[in-house]
Amino acid sequence: MSVDDNLSLAERGRASHRCELALLALMSVVLFALFFVSLFVGPVSIDLFSSEWTLFGGSSSVAAVILQEIRLPRTILAIFIGATLGISGAALQGLLRNPLAEAGVIGISGSASLGAVIAFYSGAAAIFPLALPIGGITGAMLAVIFLYLLAGRESSILTLILAGIAVTSLSGALTALALNLSPNPYAATEIFFWLMGSLADRSFEHVQIAVPLMVIGVFSLISCRRGLDALALGEDTARSLGVNLNRLTLRIIVGVALSVGAAVSVAGGIGFVGLVVPHLLRPFVGHQPGKLLLASALGGALLLLVADIAVRLLSTGQELKLGVLTSLIGAPFFLYLVLKTRRQLL
């Protein structure tokens, strides 16, 4: 390697670093702006300038109640859930070194739904509110462990996807069964929420039970960034760089289960965010899995918040499920990725 090459590599590194920082800054600014946009989109129009002050006050005007009890929790959930879905997609793709890995595609969301459904309809969540996210997290954890044992780090792309289809089908069937066994006549129709996901009429109760767990999950995943960067060079290289692969794997499994499990338990299984976002952002962070984590969290939050605003703008009657919109974007994207990686698949 000549000196020139080294120089240009270093320059390229700096350039990519600048590019990454600019991207993060831009996304943060847009996210901040969208946070306010989201507060003012809904069936009731609220005057932006007169009601801004009622966001945290104890006033009980109509605008204050709508902002504080309905739109603020909804916006907070969209941001945190989007972030967890984005970052968990990036982490799974890094760990499994599989471009198609995503919580929804490989069945983690479906399994989390099943856990949450059992916790909710059995009445456990009514007695002990944390039972809801715990149910979701348990479901997600079982799915990740099962998939990891089955497909592992070095398996083919196809094995993982097929195992994911099996997990999704099984958990979907069990979810339908659990809902049908419920004595409540409304329960059976609610499978749509658990499969597609929605943020309609969520409240601060949901923020309280899910967001702290999602934050722990996200931090657990961000702490893996060096390990993931090293793993991108191959397992042997990673080990020689001093990465404890078992601990890395465990941290990612726990992080994904916590964040996806808690997210699904309050908003249902919103698909494809973790697939689309990391792929769009990867070129901007120099294809480094570690750097991709934070970017994907921001990107996921951005995508889900935009989608949630769009759902509110598009719906006239009962709201369109949020997952319908993300799947409309995500499923064709998934197909595109399949075609792109076809050579590897065959």
Binding site: S60, V65, Y186, S203
Partner: peptide, 20 residues
């Protein structure tokens, strides 16, 4: 009914409704 749970009926328990 507090013993039979559904998201559909949980809406009637929304904190926003309790404010007024």
């Amino acid at each position: 009914n507090k013993d039979r749970h559904s998201l559909a009926q949980k809406l009637l328990d929304h904190p926003a409704l309790k404010r007024f």
